[in-house]
Write a protein that binds this DNA or RNA. Structure first.
Lengths: 336, 336
DNA sequence: GTGAAAGCGCTAACAC
DNA sequence: GTGTTAGCGCTTTCAC
């Protein structure tokens, strides 16, 4: 018992048993006498002993840990998805190792590498910016599931996402029902999710016979991008804005109000995602809500299953988003 | 070379060298001939070899990993602090293992235990709800630093926080300068940070000779709590609201506007924290801004230092918050 | 019930 | 430069 952490040997010595017995007791085996068990428990407490997960995982060749990559911690969407993942995974006795992508896509790869070195048994990617080749390589040696994207098909890799095209159509339908036709879409930039939402917008507009009103303004998924895009969109005096995500929608609303127009009296705004945390529910934003925690839970379930069935065929699950009508959309008013 | 992951032995065999040499090469030693190094590099690539971090950390008795507990992933404040931590820690070749507290304080303890089993070399607690005794025990066996709180003094545990009392006074001073006297404080509930902010409010009000106007309405740190507290506060027709944090302030603003009062024309609202991500900057909230990323960076620095100086005396560092005037506070208007 | 012994994948002396 | 050896702390047969 040096200055460093007590080991299983220290416990064994102190309890006057062999370390095998300590190991058995620690893992709750029934074949340990009550007397021994008690002495072991006492020794553990007295020594402040704590199992060394590294040694343990080396011995059992399992880490009981899954890695989670979260693209952007600042977007509440991802935090909510993570909640779902954590709940599910914990229930099955797994820990999570979490890393966040950050600005640099290259870092993302490095971080995943770290995760893999720690022998995580699976990977949940809550959004990502990895090329297909990298994804393929990763999925080939560790059970992987991606959330919010399903654009890249990789063998043995699952995905859970909402149908962005359908969701976007929901948004447009809602606005059309309110009487709008000059509906501009502020898109989310160059990423598959945003593309899908823009596609859904175009599709729905066309179906409503509004194809001549189709206008997509390049935007992004942050509030600042939403603000800028809205400023540009205003030039064509739209009566409604369908914004690529909630966060950008918040920026768009600010832009509208800064132009002395009111939401929803002058312009209706609808977002996408259904973020509800960090104070945003009170923003009263009409939106297309994804079942975020469910997305996470489902992803975790697929992963847990895949850990035991490495070669199961890829499942690409879609969950549906729903229209949540709140205060930023309203019936079209005939201008005075 | 079975179906499982290649080991250093596989690499050694394939490269026709000993595993020690592989180990040396992998850690970039100069005492490996170019020829051998090349063969090793090739073998690694061909086999798709990846170091086993568990085995490695067992052998070197270092994990090069620090654990980060983040109280609530949904509060943008914490995500920003985390950014600072990650940047600093990465620069020094450490990885982070991140866990989030969640609803149950008991889970927090369990999660920290997991972290410790993974032999993290240090712990950064971005807020927490741990009792002093637990904190003391933790800090006793692993370098620990807590961010945003400094209420509990523990030997060998550092803290980095802003001076909430001073910050709260900044807020009150600002409102007083704008002519307000009926300033109500919506507090953040039962936690040390909120208590300090409330204390600062009382202090400042008293110093301005406004002690008869002191009114603290019980609230909380979420938007819903802010909303509810504001509703209650409105009964005494205040002209300004100082809210415990930004997220709650957003809720408060919604409550004010729902009462057909305008911000800041009828009521000024000031928050605390200075969250700027997730779309909130556009909310145009006047606030007391903490240097969030700096908080994280400093915390990481202390921890890194402490890893090499376990018994260094505890440092309790304070950084100052600043008043950021935006659009939710305004000069008091004499009511018509 | 309990202990001895082998081994998980790796690093770190130490010899050559 | 390179290989041998001895662990790191743990689990897991396999005897007894």
């Amino acid at each position: 018992m040096s200055t460093s952490r007590p080991t299983i040997n220290d416990v064994a010595t102190r309890a006057g048993v062999s370390k095998s017995l300590v190991s058995l007791a620690l893992s709750g085996s029934t074949k340990v006498s009550d007397a021994s068990r008690q002495r072991i428990v006492d020794a553990v407490a007295e020594l402040g002993y704590r199992r060394n997960a590294a040694a343990r995982s080396l011995a059992v060749r399992r880490s009981h840990t899954i890695g989670v990559l979260i693209l952007d911690l600042h977007n509440p969407v991802f935090a909510e998805i993570l909640d779902g993942v954590q709940i599910e995974v914990r229930e099955h006795g797994f820990s999570t190792m979490l890393i966040s992508g950050g600005a640099d896509p290259e870092l993302e790869r490095a971080e995943i590498e770290t995760l893999l070195q720690f022998q995580v048994e699976g990977l949940v990617l809550i959004a990502h910016r990895l090329p297909a080749s990298v994804l393929r390589a990763i999925a080939a040696d560790v059970p992987t599931v991606v959330v919010t994207r399903d654009d890249i098909a990789v063998p043995n890799m699952d995905s859970v996402s909402n149908d962005d095209v359908a969701g976007a159509r929901l948004a447009v339908n809602h606005l059309v029902e309110l009487g709008h036709s000059r509906i501009v879409h502020l898109d989310g930039g160059e990423n598959p999710v945003s593309h899908a939402r823009a596609d859904g917008y175009r599709l729905a507009m066309t179906q409503h016979g509004l194809s001549e009103h189709i206008r997509v303004v390049p935007g992004g998924l942050t509030d600042a991008k939403g603000y800028a895009a809205a400023c540009e969109a205003l030039s064509s005096s739209p009566t409604a804005l369908f914004v690529a995500n909630d966060v950008a929608a918040i920026g768009a609303i600010a832009a509208v109000e800064n132009s002395n127009l009111r939401v929803p009296e002058d312009i209706s705004v609808i977002g996408y995602d259904g973020i509800s945390i960090g104070g945003l529910r009170r923003l009263n934003l009409t939106t297309i809500a994804q079942p975020l925690a469910d997305l996470g839970r489902l992803a975790a379930q697929h992963m847990l299953y895949r850990i035991n069935n490495r070669t199961a065929p890829a499942v690409r699950q879609h969950v549906s988003a729903t229209l949540v009508i709140r205060g930023t959309t309203g019936r079209l008013k005939t201008r005075a």
